[in-house]
Design a binder for these strands. Structure first.
Lengths: 211, 211
DNA sequence: CTGGGAAGTCAACAGCCGTTGGCATACGGT
DNA sequence: ACCGTATGCCAACGGCTGTTGACTTCCCAG
């Protein structure tokens, strides 16, 4: 990638006048490519998802993908844009933070195939793995740090929470372990909330949960 | 795969006399291929690990891989053979089952790169995913069923346990989230044991862990 | 010593991949 | 109506992949 922006070979990419809401004629194509790419990356992972297949799904020529996204990596970067959209948990009582966190993740994931795609790819693609690390160290990390007493313990607590939440995403959406696929979201919330709550607030010197 | 066994093109593969401990001259090569394959599959995943690279690591010709393992899929099947080696937990007091399970998994994983390899590949390769499903539904599932009171709840409990354990394997060995990589195994055991214990024995109708 | 089969080497094939440059077309401002 | 430009298609290149077949070398039983 020698150029930071899409090459747009025909000439300079400068918008003519209004900076914001201007729509180009090719935006529909761009969107179609992105939609097809998200679906293919989610279904097949980075390596097995070919530009030719994505282009065929979007009913355009493979070279259009290169023109609009520069390279396969650039396309993936655009397709795997992902925001946890963590809300502000300031108004949540401390003993219900686990429930709130799990609930947010479950509703965020059901019906959005971006995270499974990112997860699939992150298992083999170093760039995608770095992206996942950044998301969970950044977005989740700071959210946890805001509600945890001892700030030195925040990264470890966030890591443990990520391990459980990503474990659910992995087994439910990627590997599709039957028992995990079958659990209704409400039951899942009931099971997971206490785990996250404990990772969030339990005394780290504890040896065992009380009987 | 038309033949269940390695083709061995030169002729029939029948051992001459003694059925068991007979060692062929090529066993060293076979082992070298397998070792190189496990390392490459673990590091790169199925798609990015090429037969040529594996053969180069093992200092042999790529065609030898085909002769001994039939195809890339056959090689992976041999390299990703994985047994959880779950012991018999009959002698463990019920309230320490979580600790025993987590401890076994941690010692089983540290120093054996086979599971990360399998996990990496399972994210994109349907055959490997099926293998992981079989391992956790089979080996872990029956172990859990033996110690759980209500047998109808066993699969769900096993699924939740798998979600936490695989989540740890994913974040610690595959994605390498820094906070998860840095936790010493002893601390990890302390944090995870209560979670697994709860998935194993807690009342499913509970709403929340007691404060 | 000799023949035969196993072990290993070499070069090549066919296929798919990401990527590129050239060319036709349709649009929109003037 | 004109023309520059954005949009799109086509054909192709070079590279890498799994896989194959023929060839040489080595070992060991007879």
């Amino acid at each position: 990638m020698t150029d930071g922006v899409h090459p747009q070979r025909g000439g300079p990419d400068a918008e003519p006048a209004a900076g914001a809401g201007r729509t180009r004629r090719s935006d529909a194509t761009r969107a179609a490519i992105l939609r097809a790419a998200q679906a293919r990356f989610a279904a097949d992972g980075y390596d097995r998802a070919t530009i030719r297949a994505i282009a065929a799904d979007a009913r355009i020529d493979p070279s259009m993908v290169m023109r609009y996204y520069g390279s396969k990596e650039g396309l993936f970067a655009a397709a795997a844009e992902f925001d946890l959209r963590l809300p502000d948990f300031a108004g949540v009582p401390p003993e219900r933070l686990g429930e709130a966190l799990v609930g947010h993740f479950l509703t965020r994931w059901e019906g959005d195939a971006t995270l499974p795609a990112l997860l699939r790819t992150a298992c083999t693609n170093p760039g995608a793995a770095e992206r996942v690390r950044a998301i969970f160290a950044g977005q989740l990390g700071v959210a946890v740090a805001r509600v945890v007493a001892d700030p030195t313990q925040a990264p470890r607590r966030a890591g443990l929470i990520a391990s459980q939440l990503l474990g659910v995403a992995l087994t439910r959406y990627v590997l599709r372990l039957p028992p995990m696929v079958d659990i209704p979201p409400a039951d899942l919330l009931t099971w997971l909330a206490p785990t996250i709550q404990r990772y969030l607030t339990a005394d780290p010197t504890q040896a065992r949960v009380d009987p």
